[in-house]
Design a protein around this nucleic acid. Structure first.
Lengths: 201, 201
DNA sequence: TTGACAGCTTACTGACCGGTAAGTAGAGTC
DNA sequence: GACTCTACTTACCGGTCAGTAAGCTGTCAA
């Protein structure tokens, strides 16, 4: 029977992709190896072959997020603060569009106390990187004078990060909150709304 | 043996109290009847006697929140917008102080897609009430001219609600974010910080 | 041709999950 | 003293969870 045993690392990637979707929609404790193996058409133990413990899978997921997020920010270092902010906004829009997922930081911080220690460490580092990026955006916006706000960039970044995380979760109950919140943040950062009406949304 | 079979409705209340703490720290799917019965010193089936299905317990918890929150807002109708805002802030502080709990809306919106339908309906109503109160605060602040902001009260309320929900979750990783975010919100609402330094932090 | 290894499978374990049926002790009512 | 109700208990159930041991198969290198 079995002819191709998956072109090396292919199954592993499929597992990660599926686990990621399940993590963002159901949470870490909300998905099982069974759910993954059923969709992939393999046995439960096949998942355990690639990720002996569920913790290993969890850690791998966060590490992949961190690599991905690092590439994301790297690719935007040269953009202006306003453009960076809009890309940041788009990130959350993407999550919501995909089966009403919430952002990884939302899942991880909510489940944090019940996460295995190694995952907590990875999650802390990841969340720190996300918040730092929000701060960097605020800092750039002020330096360029394309944003105008009272208070320090650190505080603006913290608000930006917290607000989007909360709004993305609440969007599951009221879809409109994401757009409302983004517009209000733009207003609070002194960004001329007219510049973004061309986006049509 | 057994002499007192709990002074009528006492066990039921104990179950609710324990379940509430577990809900806010571990989530709805993150606690079990076993955990409750073990602490209470009763058998599993005793919990099922009071709440036949876990869904019943979940609904009862949200309904109790809604009653409590209605009393909370009722008692503050006559306060000024700034005072109302500070009470709102204190709410989140209370959750965090109690074993790093997060707010019920955070748990419920995060787990929303996996919640039983009856719980989803209750959760939606509850979250709507919480957001409405945030809007009411912003509205009052503007009417009294004790707050100054651009944009509509609806948007300010949405930001206020989202931000606190997110910050409360992120406080599990970085404790400082709650204070930072609150100060920044005050600044964004044009509230004179000096007025609140008497609180000492 | 043999041997090693990757990538699985079959078959299982023990713990825990929510939930149920049947029985029982005590208190209150008639 | 019999009846009834509340508030449980004991003793299960089937299902699902993460995890493991041992076996099988195709590929590739020596």
């Amino acid at each position: 029977m079995k002819m191709e045993s998956a072109a090396k690392g292919e199954t592993r990637k499929k597992i990660l992709d599926l686990a990621e979707a399940l993590l963002l929609s159901h949470g870490y404790h909300g998905f099982s190896y069974q759910q993954i193996s059923k969709v992939l058409g393999v046995r439960n133990a096949a998942i355990h072959y690639h990720f002996p413990h569920k913790t290993d899978l969890g850690v791998a997921l966060i590490q992949r997020y961190r690599r991905r997020f690092a590439r994301f920010t790297d690719s935007q270092q040269r953009l202006g603060g306003q453009e960076q902010l809009e890309r940041y906004f788009e990130l959350s829009e993407t999550y919501f569009a995909k089966d009403r997922q919430i952002c990884p930081s939302g899942v991880l911080s909510t489940e944090f106390p019940r996460l295995p220690e190694v995952m907590q460490a990875e999650a802390s580092a990841f969340i720190d990187e996300m918040r730092s990026w929000a701060v960097a955006i605020a800092l750039k916006g002020r330096a360029e004078a394309t944003m105008a706000y009272t208070g320090e960039p650190e505080a603006i970044g913290a608000v930006l990060f917290s607000t989007l995380q909360g709004a993305l979760q609440l969007a599951r109950i009221d879809e409109n909150i994401l757009v409302t919140v983004k517009n209000q943040i733009r207003a609070m950062l002194g960004i001329n709304m007219a510049e973004f009406t061309r986006e049509g949304g």
